[in-house]
Structure formats: C-alpha cells, structure tokens
Design a protein around this nucleic acid. Structure first.
Lengths: 218, 218
DNA sequence: ATAAAAATGAGGGGATTCACCTATTTGTTT
DNA sequence: AAACAAATAGGTGAATCCCCTCATTTTTAT
C-alpha cells in the first residue's frame, strides 16, 4: 500500500530560494511540490487550485506580503497549513505570524535539515519555530511588547497631535508648523507638551529623537 | 575535442541559496561547481585549493563579508573572476564592489536566467551588472556621491569633535557630555558649533537630527 | 623654531523647547 | 442639559541649543 504524498506549494519572489527549497523537498520521501509562485496573486490562485497540505510563504513579496496570502487561504477552508519564511529576524514579523495562526516559522538562513524538520513537524500537526528564534523567545516577546507599548501610546494621540508629530519628524520648529497650519505657535507647543506626556518623553531633545526614530510608524 | 569546463566556487551562508545556485549552474553546459562554502574562512581555503575560474561571493557572511574574501583572492594570483551576490539593493555595496574590481554584480532577486547571463558574460571577460541596478545607475551614482560628501564632511571633524558627536547621537545634552568627559560645558558647546559649521548644519535641531540619522557612520 | 591646527574655556544675545499653569470654544456622549 | 474630550490660545520660568566673538594652552607640521 502506497502512502499518500503530502503536497506542498512554495511562494517566494526569489527564484533561487524557490529553486533551493524545491530541491531539498524533492529529495524527501512522501513530499511533493505541486506548485510554485513568485507573487501574491499567483500564490492565491495556485493554492486555491491545488489545495495543498502545506504552503510555505515568503513574508516579503513584491506585490504585498505573505500575511495577505494567509488571509485568503483561511477563506478557502482548505486545511492548508502554513509555514512562514523570512529573511529578517524581526520580532514583529514573528508576532504577526503567530497571531495569524502560522504553524511554522523559519528564517532563510536556516539549514536544509532544519527546514525539513519544520515541514515534518507541521505536517504532523505540531508547530515549529526555528531554534534561533525560539531560543530568544523571551527577548523577542519583551521587545514585541515594547513595540506594542509604542503603538499603544501612539494610538492615544489625537488627530491634531499626530499631525503635529508628523511635522516634528520632518524637523520643523513650532513656529514653522504654526505658520503652515495657520494656528498659534502656542497651540503647537501645547500639543508638543501633550504628546510628550502621552509618550512619556522627558528632556530636551527626546521628542525630536522619538519622532525621527519612529518616523515610519507615525 | 572536449571543451574545457569552467569551474565555479560558490560562497553563501544561506544553505538554500547555495542549493539554488548550484542547481541552476549544474543544468548548464561547460559549467561545473567545484566547491561551496558558507563562511569566509572556508571560502578562502577552497578557492586557494581549487583555483576556480569564477567565484560567486555573497556580500553578507556571518564571519566577515565577501569583500574580505576578494582581497585574499587577489593575493593568490589565481585569475579567479568574481561575481558579487547580495540581498540588498544598496548603492554603497555596489560602489565598493566596483571599486574592488568585481566583474559581476547581481541581486538575489534576479532570475536564474539573469544569473546565468551574468556568469557567461564574466567568463567571456565582460562585466555584468544586474539590469535593475544598471538601469538606475545614474541615481545610484548620485546617491553614492552624496554619501561620499557626508563621509568627506565627517572626515573633516577632529577627534574631539567626533567624540562629542557620538555623545550627541546618543541624545546627551552638552551638560551631560561635559560631566562625563570632565571638561567645561562651554567647550562642548564650542565643539557643537564647530561641528555644525563643518557639516553645514543650521537650525535648532539639525545637529541632533543629523547625529541620529547617521548614527552608524559616526 | 616658527606657524598652523586643535583643544580648551568664556561671555552674551537670541531662539527653541520643556514643564508647569489657566481658559475658551466646539463637538460628542450620556 | 450636563459632562467630557479635543482644539485652540495665552503666561511664565528654566533648560538647552544656536551663533557670534575672544583668549589660552597644547599638539602637530613645515
């Protein structure tokens, strides 16, 4: 009696990675690659068509990201399990992946052996986080919580405060901001103070420092 | 008569990339992979041993970088040609590679076809820069020149000024810096002014902004 | 040895921000 | 209708930084 082969779809916009992953999977027993995609739209189409047991999704794609693909997959009710694959050892990405319900999470720097381990674990119904990450999980969680604190604090800002903060991040003085917005300089300064209070910032240049360092998040 | 095969060594610390590149090279006529390495020291050893026609070097390695390997290769007088391979579309890396005398430069996001084109070109004695980069070459050059301007300006700073700038980049006030260095606050302020002058910075927070944005370079 | 560059220190004026206040108007919620 | 949050505007004082000028000492270069 022949054991049923587990089907896999790979999504990655780097041709070499695609090549590499396919190569190590095809050396394995009971695993077969039934589809490959290099963009988000291709990926969704292929996964809907083949209903694979497993999808290995690159987080960073040219048109969107792996998380979007995962959302689509959930709608198909395929019972396709998902492993996220990423280049960057970024706690925020791991957090997002776990939040979405990924069964596996590996870095592109992992060895072929680790990746096969991950695939086997996930197909057996277990979760697998690459050792490098799980080893540092506490640190990652802490940092992740810190990020949440920043985002949480930022969400406490009102619309006006956030608008002011954008100007500050581009290194404008209160006077310049007040001129551009046609409001009093004093109003801008008040907003600055309220922002500092909400973000728990103290000291001479802590606000401009925060604004520059978190420019993308604002 | 059998045509001599061109020998290739691949260096990359990502097992999957190694796998992918080997796979596409071995599908080609007259090309054979005679060695692989995932660290700088391994790479140097293997290249000295095999004296390949071509070395494909990942820029980012765990122990050092591809540039260091290139320096070693030059000493061997192997006539081994070099292609740099990198994940990051960074003008500074391209500049460095060209400066060192690399014959080829490709991004990991390139297709297998482009990579084979690059290998063929370099083995034929031509240079090859991945189309994505050469298309933007003007922009890259400009940005690269800008970087040089910043570095040039930074090099005008004296030792003390640079030391002060480091403190500024970690958001210390003049008073704090003067306390830590046991010098007068006034001295620190004087250095600040001289730094601003040399870097052509004007305005209230331009120095701290510069310091934070160029933290790594200082 | 002499000149130039760098490091140190100081004075003063002006600008900006920080950190406390108060207060009015407007809109929303209950 | 009353309570509340948000945006607006103003006051004051301290801290910090920016932008000049000047002077002394030490180090470096010619």
């Amino acid at each position: 009696m022949k054991i049923r082969e587990n089907t896999v779809v790979i999504v990655d916009d780097h041709p070499l990675f695609l090549e590499g992953i396919r190569s190590i999977i095809q050396r394995e027993e009971n695993l077969s690659v039934v589809g490959e995609a290099s963009t988000g739209s291709e990926a969704v189409e292929i996964i809907e068509k083949h209903k694979p047991d497993l999808a290995i999704l690159d987080v960073e794609l040219k048109d969107g990201d792996g998380f979007e693909i995962f959302e689509f997959i959930k709608n198909f009710k395929n019972e396709t399990r998902v492993i996220f694959l990423t280049m960057h050892n970024d706690p925020e990405i791991l957090r997002k992946a776990l939040e979405q319900g990924a069964m596996g999470f590996i870095l592109k720097e992992n060895t072929a052996g680790e990746i096969i381990d991950c695939i086997r674990s996930v197909l057996d119904g277990h979760t697998y986080i690459c050792p490098k990450l799980s080893g540092n999980l506490f640190k990652l969680m802490k940092s992740s919580l810190l990020q949440n604190n920043i985002n949480g604090a930022l969400n406490k800002l009102t619309v006006s405060e956030r608008r002011i903060l954008k100007f500050i991040s581009s290194n404008k003085t209160s006077r310049e901001i007040s001129n551009e917005l046609n409001i009093s300089t004093k109003t801008v300064e008040n907003h600055r103070n309220n922002i500092c209070e909400k973000l728990n910032l103290h000291g001479s240049h802590s606000l401009i420092k925060f604004a520059i360092e978190n420019k993308e998040r604002i």
